[in-house]
Simulated assay, not measured.
Amino acid sequence: MGIKKFAVILVSSLLLTSSLFASEPTKKELKEALKKESQPKEVLSQFERDYILLKKGQKEFENNFSWTYNSANQIFLASFAILDPVFLTVGEFGVENIRRHIFSDTMTLRYGFLDNLQGEISVPIIYRHDRYSKIGTTGSGNEEEEKTQDQFGLGDISVGLSYQPIRETDTRPAVITNLSFKFKNGKSPFDIDVDENGEMQDLPLGSGYYAVKFGVNLAKTIDPVVVFGGISYAYNIKENVDKTYYIDDDKNASTPPKKHGLEKVDAGDTISIVMGFSYAVSYNFSLGFQFQDDLTMSTYIWTAEEGKKKVTNTNLNSGIFKLTAGWALSENSSLNFNLGMGLTSDAPDFVFEVRYPIRF
């Protein structure tokens, strides 16, 4: 009986000891648990850079390739919102159909001045291809013509600051404010020659005016989901053009082209709202959804003949729904894919983006 009792006690002790060792977390499990704890912030970083600021002294380089396609009659593509309509109004002819491709490779450098203050500069390289059919609205011909144009070069450079005055807690979201300034160094539509038929001889790659943008973003972690939203206002600064175009309005060979003097352009300001969420599928992969709506006010021009004039069809509403995926390649780099689909007639048909940020 003593030996049996001793054997039972020994077996019970071994089972208890193995159970204790089995329940003790390994180093790998502890590292994965810590990684999971920080996962929502990593997911948000992959989804939308504006919401996660760099630490003091930290730097980040991001390469962002995008392909934007639009087939609508009215074109609204960020800084390209009012470029062509200005000239259409001056020349008084209509565009029947447009197929526009814009390929952009934007290189952005960010630097953390403080843990809650970050600066950045963005330089876009753009290739633009337009194919359109034109039907004249003046004269007696009403001839239809199809034409293609291509342009490659530097777009409008922008600089910005992001500041986080409020940190996220269990009961309140993080608050990040953004202030940016856009230059007009890209090829301006106001510097492009227009022939006597009112056609541009080249394609613009910039807006032709300076712009200031201010925004406020909110983000809240509900593990493993990050919910965010924000609003911004872009103020477009009035541009003095002072350019004269000679356009043959009546298409009559015996009548000289009519003089059109474009003095100023006041591009409509834009209010943007965004909301969405991102979900951590695994330790290094996330999926997200986002809705963005840009409301652009009407553009006004000043001509020598008529003075101040409202440009028709420039009060626009561009709504886009985005699907996003983020893949963390390492602790300092990730690969992100965005597919945006236009929801309104003023929005692009689709926008496809590939982003590769790397911190150092």
Rank of each mutant, 00 (worst) to 15 (best):
I126L: 05
R172L: 14
F47R: 05
D294M: 05
F277W: 07
K310N: 04
P204Q: 02
Q201P: 04
T244L: 08
I247H: 00
E145D: 05
L114K: 04
S207W: 01
S140L: 13
D223V: 00
D195H: 01
K308R: 04
M341V: 15
N63I: 14
K147D: 02
D294T: 02
K308L: 11
K27E: 13
L20K: 08
A7F: 03
L114N: 08
W327Y: 13
Q39E: 15
M200C: 06
R110E: 06
R49E: 15
L77V: 03
E48K: 13
A234N: 06
L343A: 07
E29K: 07
I3Y: 10
Y69C: 00
Y127F: 06
R172S: 15
Y235W: 11
K243L: 08
I75Y: 06
S66C: 03
L34N: 09
I231S: 08
T270S: 10
S318K: 02
A253E: 13
Q39Y: 10
N197H: 12
N70I: 03
V8P: 00
H260F: 07
E353D: 05
S104Q: 11
A7Y: 10
E24V: 14
S18D: 04
A347R: 01
V351E: 09
I102K: 02
Y132T: 14
S334L: 14
L262I: 04
Y246W: 01
Y356C: 03
K251A: 10
K59C: 07
S19T: 10
K134I: 14
L316G: 05
K56E: 13
F277H: 02
A72M: 08
N73G: 13
D84R: 06
E29G: 01
D202A: 12
S18W: 03
A280Y: 05
Y209L: 01
E42Y: 03
P189F: 10
N284W: 01
F93R: 05
V281F: 12
E144S: 11
G261S: 14
S333N: 00
L343I: 01
E239N: 11
S12A: 15
N240I: 06
R99Q: 15
L205G: 12
Y235N: 06
D170P: 01
T255N: 08
G342S: 09
I9Y: 08
E62I: 10
P257D: 01
E120D: 13
N332S: 09
Q39F: 12
G307L: 03
P257I: 00
L329V: 12
P189R: 05
N97S: 14
F337P: 06
H260D: 15
T138M: 08
I358R: 05
I157Y: 10
D115N: 14
Y283E: 12
T171F: 07
A253T: 05
K238I: 00
L83M: 07
Q118N: 14
F87V: 11
E32R: 02
T148A: 15
N70A: 15
A253W: 04
V281N: 12
A22N: 11
E196W: 00
L15C: 13
F76L: 02
Y300M: 12
K56A: 15
Q292I: 02
M275R: 00
V216L: 10
Q290D: 10
Y356S: 06
D266V: 03
Q58P: 09
L117C: 03
N332L: 09
F113E: 09
T148Y: 09
K184F: 14
M341A: 13
D105G: 01
F21D: 09
T26K: 11
